[in-house]
């Protein structure tokens, strides 16, 4: 597929612009997004306040006045549209590699920490062991971070454990809960309302506002889950988070 010809660029406010490759969750497309993200960070363009990569899109939030100073007489939007057009070509011709880290995340799949697991394995006709193996024997890609600070959308789970969101969301999901929604898996960084099927919990504090880099995860990272026993979970939970 010629990706260079299958994208759209549109505004998401009068000071934000999105480059969008479409409605497909696809590692190759996301890889392009992460490359564009990296190039934009390196270029450090005047007036760009935020760069928000997502599954198949990337958004630039900008200060119009600052961008106009370097836009050479065209509108800030048109200037950034041209920039994004040229980046698609640049990255398309030169796939390169991103610097996504490989992260290990301990997860306890004990039913006391996984309120939806028993019902789910019943529906999926799997044993707990089979389910845990399917969820943990895989390297997931962090496609994006959103919804809550540090909430990483990871994919894709083995098709045997794809599960729909819950009919009615829970009012409170405990922090650290690992969930599945469709082919996505993710971890709630805070206690919050949520509709994902809860299949485990990590003892890691995945968002720590006191750290210089408060989010454990970055877009583009690779993650694998390591099953741990209930005793290990409580032991690890007592220890402070280790990342810097």
């Amino acid at each position: 597929m010629d990706l260079a010809n299958t994208y759209e660029i549109y505004p998401v406010s009068d000071h934000a612009i999105t480059l969008d490759f479409g409605q497909e969750i696809n590692a190759q497309t996301n890889q392009r997004i992460m490359l564009i993200f990296q190039v934009l960070l390196e270029k450090s363009i005047t007036g760009i306040k935020d760069i928000i990569p997502a599954y198949s899109s990337i958004c630039l939030v900008y200060d119009c006045k600052a961008v106009l100073k370097i836009a050479g007489g065209i509108s800030a939007y048109d200037f950034l549209k041209r920039l994004l057009d040229s980046l698609v070509i640049e990255v398309g011709n030169n796939p390169g590699s991103t610097t996504g880290r490989n992260l290990k995340v301990p997860v306890c799949y004990h039913p006391t920490l996984a309120p939806d697991l028993m019902l789910l394995i019943d529906t999926l006709q799997l044993s707990i062991e089979e389910f845990v193996a399917l969820h943990s024997n895989k390297i997931y890609r962090i496609y994006m971070i959103g919804f809550l600070p540090g909430f990483a959308y990871m994919g894709s789970v083995n098709e045997k454990i794809i599960s729909p969101r819950k009919q009615s969301p829970r009012t409170i999901v405990p922090a650290g809960s690992v969930g599945i929604a469709g082919a996505q898996t993710g971890i709630y960084p805070f206690a919050s309302p949520g509709g994902w099927q809860l299949i485990g919990r990590t003892p890691l504090e995945i968002f720590d506002a006191n750290k210089k880099q408060p989010s454990f995860f970055m877009p583009g990272d690779n993650v694998c889950f390591e099953p741990i026993a209930l005793e290990q979970f409580y032991e690890m939970q007592k220890q402070p988070s280790k990342w810097v």
Partner: peptide, 11 residues
């Protein structure tokens, strides 16, 4: 519903 992507103040 669409794939999640960026939103802004005023969306």
């Amino acid at each position: 519903e669409y794939l999640s992507s960026a939103v802004d103040f005023g969306t």
